[in-house]
């Protein structure tokens, strides 16, 4: 069980920093709390006593939502379910909607926040690959010398390793900003030991836009579960960008991921699945991006 002497729910950023200063070194930030409570149980951390839990989910800056044709800004305390239920957000971030349906279950998604998923920095965090595909930036805030200052960095720089991020002890993850990708075809592939409430062994986010000639105008691929941090598949992307979407080219792009898997456990399995996910995930995304997608038919024909 998780025990605390105080549970604080600051209503402003300033109040949050005041509470953090008061309990310096003796608090833990929570938002959805869906990871924190299960963490403090037998077999994991066991009973944990923390002087203060500071719940940041009521701070207005962490609940922001701005969506326009090119940019999206979402507060870190946005529940994952929002990416499914909010039509504007789902259109601007099609791969986040596909990811969200795989994320835990409907009820946990209603509470679990996108920021929480990022700061936990699990190698298999579901939300990280889609946000990497969106070239997401994170905005962090701290109060130093009585002044609230903010800084930004690329999500890829923010997540540093299993459980490690660039977040300083006195900082809060405020918001995530990224490119809107309306009209992109998207797919999120994930495999675990079942289909709900499951941690990914491998997950992959794919988004694609086709040009008028049905060549690949833009694509982004990101993977989780295969190394200490989720990452983009730049080599495969660069190879495919601007070219025709044929099965042979997808296979070649997938082959470029062979050396990427760093996980020691189930290494060969992850390598094989990643390879397959690149092909199949892209084929699905291509179909959603522009109707007739040659690779899909070829893929089906080649394995019929």
């Amino acid at each position: 069980m998780l025990y605390c002497d105080a549970y604080l729910t600051p209503r402003s950023l300033a109040d949050a920093f005041t509470a953090m200063a008061e309990y310096r070194g003796r608090y833990r930030l929570v938002a959805g709390a869906t990871d924190t409570l299960p963490w403090a149980r037998a077999g994991r951390a066991g009973d944990v006593a923390i002087p203060a839990l500071i719940d940041v989910s009521a701070i207005p800056e962490l609940r922001e939502r701005r969506v326009d044709a090119t940019r999206v800004r979402i507060g870190a305390a946005t529940p994952m379910q929002r990416f499914l239920d909010d039509g504007d957000l789902a259109r601007a971030m099609p791969v986040m909607a596909r990811c969200a349906v795989w994320f835990a279950d409907d009820q946990i998604r209603a509470a679990a926040t996108v920021g929480g998923n990022l700061v936990n920095a699990s190698p298999a965090a579901d939300a990280t690959p889609p946000l990497l595909a969106h070239d997401a930036q994170v905005e962090l805030a701290c109060a130093r010398e009585g002044k609230i200052t903010r800084r930004r960095m690329a999500l890829g720089d923010f997540v540093r390793g299993p459980g490690k991020t660039a977040l300083e002890a006195d900082e809060i993850l405020l918001a995530i900003e990224c490119a809107a990708l309306p009209g992109y075809g998207a797919e999120f592939e994930k495999v675990g030991h079942r289909r709900s409430l499951v941690i990914a062994t491998v997950c992959l986010a794919a988004v694609v836009r086709l040009d008028a000639a049905h060549a690949i105008a833009d694509l982004r691929l990101a993977v989780g579960g295969v190394g200490p941090v989720p990452c983009r598949l730049h080599e495969s992307e660069n190879f495919l960008r601007g070219g025709a979407a044929t099965l042979a080219r997808l296979e070649e792009a997938a082959h470029m991921t062979v050396g990427l898997v760093q996980s020691r456990t189930r290494h060969d399995y992850r390598r094989d699945v990643l390879h397959g996910f690149v092909v199949r995930g892209l084929a699905s995304a291509l179909r959603r991006a522009g109707g007739a997608s040659p690779p899909v038919g070829e893929l089906e024909a080649s394995h019929a």
Partner: peptide
Amino acid sequence: GAGECGTCSVFLDGVLVKSCLVPVA
């Protein structure tokens, strides 16, 4: 007690949540 089974599901402001994962505050 870990949000894995759903026996504790309740509506909070009309949204279904797992009450073992919800701090009472």
